[in-house]
């Protein structure tokens, strides 16, 4: 069947790139794989109506990348997990730490802002492209980017370890 063959070719050619994007969105390999497979399955049932499969799948991924329908008020129980890790004040291995801190901080951004950051900066997409994938205006992309970067600057994971070196 031509459609199935086209679909298979698409999965073979593009799904690893999609998984990489999903990983940047979810920061978890298992969830990334699940997200891509869910999006591809949905795409299959709409295949004949889709003009641009990759855009379609990416859009599904972006809009479902968070567990957005988590009914938190059902059987919610307090967690024993400690609060998000704070920066190690040791200051050694600065580059690796910085990368991990940034990664952690991006993971704490609201879903939509995280998606904008991933698409704009980690995937180097244009504002227009990002807006199309997110189904919003370029203005919204710009404002979400600004908000995300402002939040990252204030994130505890990225705050200076001490006052040393701060400009007064």
């Amino acid at each position: 069947m031509a459609e199935e063959s086209e679909f298979n070719e698409f999965v073979a050619a593009r799904s690893q790139a999609l998984v990489r994007s999903a990983y940047l969105l979810t920061q978890d390999e298992g969830r990334a794989e699940d997200l891509v497979q869910t999006a591809l399955t949905k795409a299959w049932f709409a295949w004949s109506r889709i003009d641009d499969p990759e855009a379609y799948v990416r859009r599904i991924m972006v809009t479902t990348s968070a567990s957005w329908w988590r009914r938190r008020w059902i059987r919610e129980s307090p967690t024993d997990e400690p609060p998000a890790q704070l920066r190690d004040s040791g200051g050694s291995e600065a580059t690796a730490d910085e990368g991990q801190d940034l990664w952690t901080a991006i993971g704490r951004l609201p879903r939509r802002q995280r998606a904008v950051v991933v698409l704009r900066y980690l995937e180097d997409r244009t504002e227009t492209d990002t807006a199309q994938l997110l189904g919003c205006s370029v203005g919204t992309v710009k404002s979400q980017c600004a908000k995300a970067l402002a939040k990252l600057r204030l994130d505890t994971a990225l705050a200076p370890a001490s006052d040393e070196g701060s400009v007064s």
């Binding site: 799904s15 990489r20 794989e33 990368g99 950051v117 995937e123």
Partner: peptide
């Protein structure tokens, strides 16, 4: 600024390519 974040994209390149299994799973 956004440029400071670009290097994080490298993390996704370490993922194992499991395209054939993925096709079966899908």
């Amino acid at each position: 600024n956004g440029e400071d974040l670009k290097f994080l994209a490298e993390r996704s390149w370490t993922l194992e390519d499991r395209t054939p299994e993925r096709l079966v799973d899908v």
